[in-house]
Design a protein around this nucleic acid. Sequence first.
DNA 1: TAAATAGTGTCTATTAGACATTATGCT
DNA 2: AGCATAATGTCTAATAGACACTATTTA
Lengths: 221, 221
Amino acid sequence: MQQVICTVDVVLLTLQDDALKVALLNRSHEPFQGVAALPGGYIHPQSDGDAQDAALRVLREKTGITPPYLEQLATFSGPARDPRGWSVSIVYYALVPANVVAENVHPGVKLTSVDKPLKLPFDHLEIIRAAVARLRSKSQYSSLPCYLAGETFTLPQLQRVYESLMGEAINKVSFRRKITEMDMLEAVEGVFSSGVAHRPAQLYRLKPEIHEQLALLARGM
Amino acid sequence: MQQVICTVDVVLLTLQDDALKVALLNRSHEPFQGVAALPGGYIHPQSDGDAQDAALRVLREKTGITPPYLEQLATFSGPARDPRGWSVSIVYYALVPANVVAENVHPGVKLTSVDKPLKLPFDHLEIIRAAVARLRSKSQYSSLPCYLAGETFTLPQLQRVYESLMGEAINKVSFRRKITEMDMLEAVEGVFSSGVAHRPAQLYRLKPEIHEQLALLARGM
DNA sequence: TAAATAGTGTCTATTAGACATTATGCT
DNA sequence: AGCATAATGTCTAATAGACACTATTTA
């Protein structure tokens, strides 16, 4: 009969100071007790409706966060990735605005730059690299970065999010044409009052019908 | 302790008469014995190096085919998708040229149009829809369709493959510009002699360094 | 040499980016 | 008023598509 260990892991990503951070926490059990790793855990067949439910539960229990966006990344498997034996990890990635992290995150969760050289147990480094690659790839042609920008945001703020993810400046006029083409935002009454000495920008939010969905571009950013 | 059934399923896709077909075979065991379904089976932790190895083994054992392209699609899970209990299926999709199918496929494998209304056990219909959506999506901006076109092919043949997948005509000049931009083909010495009464087309094959990889376009087809 | 399709040159339309101008808040 | 940044208008560059023309094979 089978002896396959079945777990979920979650790559929680957020933007802090224009840099992409991943949430790590010190493991409470063996193997690798005390070592920083991705939040993860066993599937609970008695209570979990599917693997995504398990990922949401694990993320809530371990980090205190319920993410506005969660998507399956891939499944990692093999005999060597976990010292307990042949294992399967169904991995999800979550996008969370910085303020939602700050207000809800459990103490002990560490936000670490994804570009820093990380030492991580299991195949968690490979998993994080895959999640970041997926996010950056989808950011080229979709509304995905909006889920890192918060509940409401201005277009200059959103452009900074896209630029941080892509690692390069975007033409302002082209950016706004693309945002209009995606048809995913609605203006929030009242404007962003920056307190600084210049014209304030209009606030926007994702249209309700877009939540947890993605708007797509025909030809990319 | 856990009671999670861990399996792999494979969506084998091929182009036959310009239509996308999926390989189905009648199940040899319960549940759904005798019913047409995707090739699938248990992971063998003693012998499988990872889930992809299990998918290759299952595909070879059940259909006789070793695919030139195999990629993880997604993992499907939950308590209701399999009557045996809470289950996980790590699903792969394979692209195989029609002639490779014809020359190697086991008797009993049925190729069925993916657009036909299918009655399938488990969540196999949803899985096939996801695989077709992934293939069509990636065909917009990558060399993926080449794996459906055979070992060697002419540019008019390749264009027909792309057009069949996308469901619409492509401008010939633009298509050739995009193929050149992807820089993935090398000419095969000698030309395709169609035997029909017109100018023969140059034969091409994927560059060796592209095999099992994808060439990408900056702005799509 | 006529028919059929391969392959390419070139013009036009569409899309993206550069740059400039106007708008609007604050000090 | 003057500064800073938001928002938009408009010109230019780059890319995509339409169309036509040449090339090469067989009947």
